[in-house]
Nucleic acid binder design. Structure first.
Lengths: 185, 185
DNA sequence: GCGACATCTTGTCAATGGCAAGATATGCTC
DNA sequence: GAGCATATCTTGCCATTGACAAGATGTCGC
């Protein structure tokens, strides 16, 4: 997990993860090839195996990184529920590759302790912000939290899939803000 | 598109699509192998190519079928917005393979006319039902329609990903109904 | 400097997608 | 019903990939 330095390549592990983010962001996880990543990094075709074992291992590392990035992003959004939702959507758009992998557990080993812990941290960041407001204004905080998560996750997913009509505009953050506000009216 | 009958296999095209639904439903689109489908159907490894060209062609046919199934499901739900949303979630759960492919355009050829037409039909079924109610109760029907679509799509996606906590329960339809009702309060 | 270890390379194999060419059955025309 | 065009399917092939095994190379502790 820690990035030791000074080997042959320098920091192959991080280089491979960064290249994987590029490839997945452009063409999706299906297009990911360990040999292609190795070529991009200028190493032999078997080098990635040492760091990640296999393709699922690489995607597992990517998922952990993604949940940690999401935790950070949500933490920076503060306690305002609207801004928390906007931050969720912004994370999905800015870290498309991570987001797409995180919520596709068949691509990686979602049951390893590191993933479980990272997902739990992200869940706490999300649920904590939601419950602060929801508990004060509703008789069903769990239901409200699930509704909030669903609406931001759905919007982000539809946006990334290119499924939304042109009328929504070019700015995902503004559109998300408008949609989320619907929950408070 | 029409299923002609009476050849060697009988109805290979439909058999292959059905097998693909099984595989994707169990292991996701990444695990799909044309040769595996051919083995399941008892034909040679190159037989699928004649019907679908390549893997993207098969998934394109699956996406078209999915949008048509969704159109039917939404049509059967009537004009009630709550039931429309529940039908959307039920479709996603009952036709997991179709749903997962439909909203992953990098897996197939989303720009071919058949896909565009099928998606358009599904969009009309969704938007028509939403606008009937939204227009009467809101000053921003487009925003409301997007919010409704986002919340049901997000709930369905999170449910399929296994991301929801155990407290949500075992019945997706009941949980969805509860969440969607949040939009009307 | 020396040994233990992490890192990376080379070599190999089975599986897959995709293409080309040929075999077989179906249906249409007369 | 015979012959031919066509749809359907098979066999054969090649490049790419994931995964594994074994070896080479660099790094670090002592």
């Amino acid at each position: 997990m820690t990035t030791t330095r000074g080997y042959h390549h320098g920091d192959l592990r991080r280089t491979l993860l960064a290249a994987a983010v590029d490839v997945i962001g452009e063409s999706g996880p299906v297009a990911l090839s360990l040999r292609d990543l190795a070529r991009r990094a200028g190493v032999s075709h078997a080098a990635p195996a040492h760091h990640f074992g296999d393709k699922a291992g690489l995607l597992t590392a990517l998922a952990v990184e993604g949940f940690d990035l999401l935790t950070d992003a949500l933490g920076r959004a503060g306690d305002d529920l609207l801004e928390l939702g906007v931050a969720y959507v912004r994370f999905a758009v800015d870290h498309r590759a991570h987001f797409e992998v995180m919520f596709r557990p068949e691509l990686y080993r979602a049951d390893v302790p590191e993933v479980v812990a990272a997902r739990s941290r992200a869940g706490a960041a999300l649920r904590g912000g939601v419950s602060a407001l929801a508990a004060a204004s509703s008789a069903e905080p769990d239901r409200d939290a699930l509704a909030a998560w669903s609406i931001v996750h759905g919007f982000a997913t539809l946006w990334l899939a290119g499924a939304l009509p042109a009328g929504v505009g070019e700015d995902p953050e503004a559109a998300a803000r408008s949609v989320i506000r619907r929950l408070f009216e």
